[in-house]
């Protein structure tokens, strides 16, 4: 399936039955050099919109919200060890967590790429 986006600049993409979540390239650019990432514990259960992770630059701190409800099944330790990866490949290798979705239909409320790009343009 294609990538979906939230208005809070998270992206989510299905792969082999789990949902991979990260922050958009646009959000990473706005933050500047990412210096710190805090990830949730594996097994944590999240409702859509819950605080899921924290991403920080030198001058800004942002909460990353769960785009859909679900359970954390995997975290990307590589970005916690090397936060710079978020600036390099926000929508690829620098994913944040993998979720087991509770209700995949929640994805329907999110934006597709074209809608997100338009949203960013108008923000």
């Amino acid at each position: 399936m294609s990538v979906k986006y939230t208005k809070d600049h998270e992206w989510v993409r299905e792969e082999g039955g789990v949902y991979i979540v990260g922050i958009s390239t646009h959000a990473a650019e706005q933050l500047g050099d990412v210096v710190f990432v805090e990830l949730p514990e594996i097994g944590k259960s999240l409702s859509k919109g819950d605080d899921m992770a924290v991403v920080e630059s030198v001058k800004a701190a942002s909460d990353v919200y769960a785009p859909i409800s679900g359970e954390v099944v995997e975290i990307n330790q590589a970005i916690a060890d090397e936060p710079a990866k978020v600036n390099e490949d926000a929508q690829g290798a620098a994913w944040f967590v993998k979720l087991k979705a509770k209700d995949a239909s929640e994805l329907d409320t999110l934006m597709d790429e074209a809608a997100y790009n338009e949203f960013v343009e108008n923000e």
Partner: peptide
Amino acid sequence: LSTREQHIRRDK
């Protein structure tokens, strides 16, 4: 590590 501090995190 200023992101811990009030001038950035404010209420958090």
